[in-house]
Design a protein around this nucleic acid. Structure first.
Lengths: 261, 261
DNA sequence: CGTAGCCTTGACCGACGTCAATGATGGTGG
DNA sequence: CCACCATCATTGACGTCGGTCAAGGCTACG
């Protein structure tokens, strides 16, 4: 029952598109509306009629659903550049709600204008498929994580994902600031400020346990409290705990035994 | 903190396409190859180079990934009519593996032929987006489920999902047969035969606990052992335990309180 | 008859949830 | 400037759901 090393796995997608979604929508004459959300403001709820698609320009938001017991599951965070509300393409009502974690700016596109174009313009189809696939990869990953990992692993992974996505989105830090200018990725790294409740609801843990687990990571010297949030102090160490493989969900180890059905 | 009743929620997708995927692919001249899988045969592993897309014609299969500790997570089951391996559209290597639960027949399409067409032919784009969205809905749902539900709820829900998807796919039962001809949905209903290990790996539970939980459901008179698998005896009862809302993930109750960030 | 899967059951234990009390912080209005 | 309150974080005590280990049974199959 050994580990089989697959071919080298590439980070980049086959379908890299040069234009951003925003550009594409503009080029194709889809009308846009700017809008702002204040912290904690809800853009739409589960069950609201779905008639718009959005792109986040600034700020940090998230998509959520509610369990019947009233508890909240955060399905995914949205960073600047992310597409939001794609459910509107295939459904009449949103299945998830969407709200702002920090004050945010979005652009809204009417979905009917969108659908009339999106299947005709190859570029748009492509960006859609690509984007939904990416979302799906993140979701799948999170599913595996929530189903099989310990609290420390989940949290470590979550912090790394936050960092990676924020960097991709061009944020130097998360609703916050960089610790000391000039540092890159050595001991003291990235600074994160986010309520424990958000971590808990994303990873399916209780707030209390998130607090305890963060304390443990702190004791282990992996993260530290800064004046404006927590910082990743030992990036390699945290990556080891989280079994980090990069933002893309590629595996660098694959089990090669016969798979019992 | 009351429940807000949203607008009536519809089951149907906005983008209902009359042609099946198989028809569409044929019409657009994409070359196809038939292939068979024996029980437990693996079609591809995580890390294999991704150059084909498949459609399941007969049998029951599933997509899996491995956790670094060697444990298996089943990401989704595939029923006849389901598209498989769409990761090939956006990535060079499969991120998940795919294998047959029962002897199965598939059709394979080369992905390069596919990509040259799929963004140009609106019908194809549409079916893609629609399909991936559907997959994503199931995934999201499962995430919420795994994160927040008890073992009985997860299992009850899983059984109902199996039943619903099998019926959609036109299977009268699951690798099996209908119990007594003439019954519809009264006391004795649908018959399911599936290894406990599959349930466990799908829902993130141990085999032992799956066994225990099924026993409990049996004691409660919700399911029963038949000579060729288990049958759902009390459908409404099971739906109540699972908090079943139908195959589509629409909520019929939405919490309307302000959402704390 | 022996072996290999798969299911079941019991004993035990640990990770995580719940409840509750206490602090730290920061914004707001008087 | 301070009192007040809301939000968020922390910590302890305690309970439980579900994992692990191990043994035993059932069926299928060579």
């Amino acid at each position: 029952m050994g580990w089989r090393i697959p071919q080298a796995l590439k980070e980049r997608s086959k379908l890299s598109s040069e234009n951003t979604a925003v550009d594409l929508f503009r080029i194709n004459g889809i009308s846009s509306t700017e809008l702002k959300l204040t912290k904690s403001e809800v853009l739409y709820y589960e069950g609201d009629s779905a008639n718009r698609i959005y792109i986040v320009r600034r700020g940090l938001c998230f998509t959520f659903r509610h369990h019947e017991d009233g508890r909240r599951q955060i399905v995914d965070l949205s960073f600047p550049g992310d597409l939001v509300g794609l459910e509107a393409l295939t459904q009449d009502y949103y299945v998830s709600g969407f709200t702002a974690l920090t004050a945010s700016e979005l652009v809204a596109y009417p979905v009917d204008e969108f659908t009339s174009q999106c299947y005709i313009v190859p570029e748009l189809s492509r960006i859609l498929v690509e984007y939904i696939s990416r979302e799906q990869a993140i979701l799948t990953r999170r599913l595996v994580e929530v189903a099989h990992s310990s609290a420390s692993q989940r949290i470590a992974h979550f912090l790394l994902e936050l960092r990676a996505r924020a960097l991709v989105a061009g944020m130097q830090a998360l609703a916050l600031k960089q610790t000391s200018p000039g540092r890159e990725d050595s001991e003291q790294d990235f600074c994160i400020r986010i309520p424990h409740a958000v971590i808990a609801d994303t990873l399916g843990l209780s707030i209390v346990h998130v607090s305890r687990t963060l304390s443990k990571l702190r004791e282990q010297g992996l993260i530290a409290d800064m004046e404006d949030g927590m910082a990743i102090v030992d990036l390699p160490g945290l990556q080891k705990v989280a079994d980090w493989e990069g933002l893309s969900p590629w595996f660098d180890k694959v089990e090669g035994r016969e798979t019992p059905a």
